[in-house]
Design a protein around this nucleic acid. Structure first.
Length: 238
DNA sequence: GTTGAGCGTT
């Protein structure tokens, strides 16, 4: 059974952590284990997940038992295509085993064959509008934290006012990569609808929204619905 | 059904 990363660090007394970057959002430890276990003894695999959605964040940590095996895995699996994405395997900088790696002269061992023939995408690391949590904090002194934690200003009703779209769209849906993988060339040349800034302002009769007091017993159909059927008040769309 | 830089859990 694979219970990696499910119950904290099991045994990290002599393990070496590797950082796996550029992994797919749906790549799990079960997918990485058979890959990394072939090159050495993998003691644990941990994939950081998002607090809100619980999905993978796009990278994983693979802990090896021996450094040489870890080094070999880095050399072998770095640049390997996993789940449709080209992963990046490298030693973890931070972590419980960081200092050991530093003392284990692993970094001192020059990777003789770190072939990066197919240099991955240049990866323009433009930090402009994303990951600007610190930027927000400066502009907005009391902005919410990454997880929505703020001091003194808790969510008013987390039952439904707390980013319902995020929890829903990310926690529930799971799409098949094969679908868009083979048909990702499709485009939508269709002429998008003309921009209607004010959804056809039917001038002539303002919808009852503007009436001082619309008759509740008068239905759009003209029928009298006192309290029989709850008329859908869908006229409040701006 | 979305996103794509980076360094982690009891």
């Amino acid at each position: 059974m694979s219970h990696f990363g499910r119950a904290g660090p099991p045994d990290i007394s002599d393990t070496y952590s590797l950082l796996i970057l550029n992994t797919s959002f749906r790549t799990t430890a079960d997918d990485l284990f058979p890959l990394f276990d072939k090159y050495g003894k993998v003691v644990d695999i941990f994939i950081p997940k998002d607090r809100r959605t619980g999905d993978s964040r796009g990278f994983a940590f693979v802990r090896y038992k021996y450094a040489d095996e870890a080094q070999e895995a880095v050399d072998r699996l770095d640049g390997r295509e996993v789940d449709g994405r080209e992963i990046t395997v490298q030693f973890a900088k931070y972590g419980p085993k960081a200092e050991r790696i530093h003392k284990g002269r692993i970094i001192e061992k020059p990777p003789r064959s770190r072939v990066r023939s197919r240099s991955r995408s240049p990866r323009p690391r433009y930090r402009d509008d994303y990951r600007d949590d610190d930027y927000r904090r400066r502009t907005h002194s009391r902005s919410r934290d990454r997880y929505g934690r703020d001091r003194g200003h808790h969510y008013q009703s987390r039952s439904r006012s707390y980013s319902p779209d995020y929890d829903r769209a990310r926690g529930r849906a799971r799409y098949d990569d094969e679908r868009w993988s083979r048909s990702r060339s499709i485009e939508s040349p269709g002429p998008r609808r003309s921009l209607s800034p004010r959804r056809t302002p039917t001038r002539g009769r303002n919808h009852d929204s503007r009436s001082p007091s619309r008759n509740p017993s008068l239905s759009p159909n003209g029928r009298h619905h006192d309290s029989r059927s709850p008329s859908p008040r869908s006229r409040y769309q701006e």
